[in-house]
């Protein structure tokens, strides 16, 4: 029997699940980002520190993300549009889920690719029509997965990854957001 290795340490995750069942305080994480206006509609966001397992934590290094808007918005297009970062988050979250669930179910993955499309009516953000919402109307994710598994098993991986995805939940369900001036 060959050993399935998708590079996910499932034992550690299952261990954490058991420990955190009885320690909800340790399970309370806070993720942080800090942004700074650059110029025009461009800004830069930096991420390094977060809180979890009862103490301050730090990524190995700081990550820097630029966001701008396209030239057809009369902007400089030095970087991707903020709403596209939602697709970045969704794609990477679902993919991580597919890999983890596959590891747990003993399914060897060879390749996992996803194409995402977010349908967006920009009349909302322009204020051109108050009946149109600002955000995505619809997001479509199409996975192409090559693995040692049946079609049904692959569909089940993708379904389970949605069920356990933080970003899928954040996008499909309402969240209270508080924005203040310091």
């Amino acid at each position: 029997m060959t050993t399935v290795d998708n590079g996910v340490n499932v034992e550690a995750l299952l261990g954490a699940r058991e420990v955190l069942k009885g320690a909800p305080e340790a399970a309370a994480f806070t993720w942080r980002a800090s942004s700074k206006w650059a110029h025009g509609v461009q800004s830069q966001v930096k991420i390094q520190n977060y809180f979890g397992l009862g103490e301050e934590q730090s990524h190995k290094s700081e990550s820097v993300f630029d966001a701008d808007h396209p030239e057809i918005f009369a902007a400089t297009d030095n970087a991707i549009t903020p709403i596209e970062y939602l697709l970045v988050g969704l794609a990477s979250c679902l993919t991580a889920g597919v890999a983890s669930v596959a590891q747990n179910r003993g399914i060897q993955l060879r390749s996992v690719e996803a194409n995402l499309e977010g349908a967006h009516d920009i009349r909302g953000i322009l204020g051109a029509d108050s009946d149109v919402r600002n955000g995505f109307n619809d997001i479509k994710v199409t996975f192409s997965i090559d693995a040692d598994a049946s079609k049904e098993e692959i569909e089940a991986l993708v379904a389970q990854s949605q069920k356990r995805s933080a970003v899928f939940d954040a996008l499909t369900n309402p969240t209270n957001v508080t924005v203040e001036v310091a």
């Binding site: 049904e152 569909e155 089940a156 379904a159 949605q162 899928f168 939940d169 499909t172 369900n173």
Partner: peptide, 19 residues
């Protein structure tokens, strides 16, 4: 306000029934 994840609960239930 309802979840936008309706398709996935359908998939989960269909897959489980078929298994």
């Amino acid at each position: 306000l309802f979840s936008g994840g309706l398709r996935n609960v359908f998939s989960l239930a269909d897959l489980k029934m078929n298994r």
